[in-house]
C-alpha cells in the first residue's frame, strides 16, 4: 500500500445506507405502500411475506452496514498490513459454511413451515363441493365471463363455433349449455359471492393471459389450449380490480375486469335475472 486511502468512501457508504433506510421507511409509511388490502382467505401468503420481509430486512441491514463499516474501518494505510486469513483450516471452512446453512434453514422454515406448502396444496388440491363456479376466458384484450347457470355445469364449447354472436363457441345442442350465462369479452363484470368458495376456471382464446386479483392474492395463467384452475373465498364486500399479469400484446396494460363482491343471495338473485345462453344463441 503506497498511499493512505481516503475515509470518504466508507463514510459515504455508511451515510448512504443509513439515510437511505430511514428515508425509505419514512416514505413507505407515509404513503402506505404495502400489500393491497386483503379481501380473501389467503392470509397465509401475507403471513409468509411479512416473515420473510422481517428476516430479509434484518439480513439486509446487517450485511449492508457491515459492508459499509468494513470499507470505512479497513481503508488502506501504508503502515498497516492486512490480517492474513486464507481460510484453509477445518474450523475456518466450517465458519464459512455456517452462515449459509443458517440462512437456508431460516428461509426454509419461513417458506415451508408457516403454512406455505399446505396452502399450495389446498389451492391446487380438491375444490370444495358447494363452490361458486365461474369461467373466465381471456382474449386480446378483455375477459369473457361465463356462469354455469342453475345446473352448475358448463356446456361444451367448440372453437369452430366461435363467431361474433358466440364468442366462446358454445355448443348450444349440449343440455348443460342451455342455461349457461355468458358475458362476451368486455361486456360484463365479475360478480362474486361473499364468504363462499369461488372456483375460477381459466381459459384463453389466443395468447397467454393471467388473471390477477391483487386484493385476493390470486394469480393463475390463462393458457390457450387448456383450462387452469384456482379457488379462494372472498372475504370482503366491495369493488375490486382484475388485471392481466402476463404480457399479451399492446393492450396488456388495460386488460381490466371489474370484480364486485356481494352477499351470496344478492349474487344468486342477479344471476337469475340474466338471459341464459339458449335464448341468445339459437
Amino acid at each position: 500500500m503506497s498511499e493512505k486511502q481516503s475515509k470518504f468512501h466508507g463514510l459515504l457508504f455508511l451515510f448512504f445506507f443509513i439515510t437511505g433506510m430511514i428515508l425509505s421507511v419514512w416514505v413507505v409509511l407515509r404513503n402506505g405502500w404495502w400489500l393491497p388490502e386483503l379481501a380473501s382467505d389467503r392470509e397465509t401468503i401475507d403471513k409468509i411475506f411479512v416473515t420473510i420481509f422481517i428476516i430479509a430486512g434484518i439480513l439486509f441491514i446487517l450485511s449492508e452496514l457491515s459492508l459499509s463499516f468494513f470499507v470505512l474501518k479497513y481503508s488502506g494505510d501504508p503502515n498497516r498490513r492486512a490480517f492474513y486469513l486464507p481460510g484453509n483450516t477445518k474450523k475456518e471452512i466450517l465458519w464459512s459454511i455456517l452462515p449459509g446453512t443458517l440462512v437456508v434453514i431460516i428461509l426454509e422454515i419461513s417458506a415451508e413451515f408457516l403454512g406455505g406448502a399446505s396452502l399450495w396444496g389446498r389451492i391446487y388440491g380438491e375444490v370444495p363441493k358447494d363452490a361458486f363456479l365461474v369461467e373466465i376466458t381471456g382474449e386480446q384484450f378483455a375477459w369473457n365471463v361465463r356462469y354455469p347457470g342453475p345446473d352448475g355445469k358448463f356446456g361444451k364449447t367448440d372453437p369452430k363455433l366461435i363467431s361474433t354472436d358466440n364468442p366462446l363457441g358454445i355448443d348450444i345442442s349440449d343440455e348443460a349449455a342451455k342455461d349457461d350465462i355468458v358475458f362476451p369479452a368486455g361486456q360484463g363484470i365479475l360478480y362474486l359471492p361473499l364468504n363462499r368458495p369461488v372456483v375460477f376456471l381459466i381459459r384463453s382464446k389466443d395468447v397467454i393471459h393471467s388473471p390477477y386479483l391483487p386484493n385476493f392474492r390470486v394469480k393463475q395463467d390463462a393458457v390457450p389450449g387448456m383450462t387452469t384452475r384456482t379457488w379462494f373465498v372472498p372475504k370482503k364486500e366491495g369493488e375490486f380490480e382484475l388485471a392481466c399479469a402476463e404480457l399479451c400484446g399492446l393492450g396488456h396494460y388495460r386488460m381490466k375486469l371489474p370484480v364486485v363482491v356481494e352477499p351470496a343471495e344478492k349474487v344468486e338473485e342477479w344471476l337469475r335475472e340474466q338471459t341464459p345462453a339458449a335464448d341468445l344463441y339459437y
Partner: peptide
C-alpha cells in the same frame, strides 16, 4: 437450496475484506 452456496460466497467475500487493507 441455491441460496446456500450463494450465501456462502457472499459471506466469504465479506470476510475477505474484513480486517483487510483496502485500496479503494
Amino acid at each position: 437450496a441455491i441460496s446456500f452456496p450463494t450465501a456462502i460466497l457472499i459471506f466469504n467475500y465479506l470476510v475477505t475484506i474484513w480486517r483487510g487493507n483496502l485500496r479503494l
